[in-house]
Amino acid sequence: MIALGPADPRYPARLLDLRHPPDPLWIDGDLGALGGRAVSIVGTRRMTPYGARVARELATALAEADVVVVSGLAQGIDSAGHEGALAAAGETVAVLGAGIASYLEEVHGKRRRLAHAIRGRGALVSEFPPGAPAQHWTFAQRDSTIAALGEMTVVVEAPVGSGALITTAEARRLRRPVYAVPGPIGAAASAGTNDLIAAGAARALTGAEMLLAALGLRYATRADDPDDDARVLDALAASPSDPDALARRLGLSTTTLAAIVARLVIRGRIGTAADGRLARR
């Protein structure tokens, strides 16, 4: 772990745009991940399966284009973003709301494994001394740092009052582009993001292709799916579904559906969610 001050030539240049750049910034991992092309992906802890899929998909597309994904390693959208980047063998940076040592000591379960994976394929960073505990105000402060580390910020799902909106507000102050993923009207998890779009504070993001175009990069499009496969994937785009409902909706027999699903499962396009429903990967 090293600590860099703003005067250090290795200090991440984008952070210098902040009114009070972290001094010092503690870094555990690959310094190189902090200087190159990077996009911040943020959102609520209470994500829906739709948000999980979109965060993952965007992060994967960024990683495949060698863009670093920056987020806060919270549960929910943050974790999905880091995971998507790692799944595509990309680099990702987690900005912590506590000291690095203190965070690693406290965290358990899935995020513990994730934190260690990020140390190996990117970096854990914090503006708080290694042993500092997380407090309410530390999160608000690191939310701004996340905005400053990315060239642009994408907020995937955020209810009204979400911490993710601190990041988007900071990104606007820094005059960096802000994108929000539109969600269903009436869904609490998308109320904040839809508000941003309505107020003109964020542009509606229509997919990974648009994001990469905004970065001046090309999106490696996948080969077109056969018709039946595409219909099943479309039907699962908004949310996971159980096989009976899906078969009814598409007017397919369960046997036909099972055959299509088997093909898509094996190709890694869909999986069974932990509750047994079918979900897009």
């Binding site: 209470r46 929910g76 379960g109 899935k110």
Partner: peptide
Amino acid sequence: YGDPALECRCLPEQVE
């Protein structure tokens, strides 16, 4: 969780 008519209030790690 997964009930289209109702919103789940659980955090991902609680579910896990």
